[in-house]
């Protein structure tokens, strides 16, 4: 089985998808480390999973719902308490291009 190599180009792409700005040094480092890790976890390809269904709901509960009721939440002050910047009750961020 060939190594699941993660090239620096891929690392950069993954970095963008992850919203992480990576330095050149980090890109190189992660490329090597992630290649090692992926190569290791690739061991799973040897496991015959056949028709085994994926497991994602570990405690086997279903239909857990909430009544449609309104309850008090945070005040505006509490909501903005940890904000980096606020303006007249809004969170403020540098201009985002209109999508």
């Amino acid at each position: 089985m060939p190594k699941q190599v993660l090239t620096e180009k891929e690392v950069k792409h993954i970095g963008k998808l992850s919203n992480l700005e990576l330095s050149e040094k980090e890109t190189q480092k992660f490329s090597a480390e992630l290649t090692d890790i992926l190569d290791f976890v690739e061991n799973l390809s040897a496991v015959d999973t056949g028709e085994t269904p994926a497991l994602s709901n570990i405690n086997e509960k279903t239909n857990v719902f909430r009544e449609d009721e309104v309850r008090p939440g945070l005040t505006q002050k509490q909501a903005l308490k940890n904000a980096k910047e606020a303006h007249k009750g809004f969170f403020k961020v540098p201009a985002i291009l209109k999508e």
Binding site: L20, T49, A54
Partner: peptide
């Protein structure tokens, strides 16, 4: 950062079946 990158990769288009889905199946085993 390392784990975020790794997870973004294992969920990304083209790799999710090989990694996330496969792992979810072995998890059941």
């Amino acid at each position: 950062k390392r784990r975020i990158m790794l997870g973004t990769y294992t969920l990304s288009a083209g790799y999710i079946d090989q990694f996330y889905l496969k792992a979810s199946k072995v998890r059941r085993l």
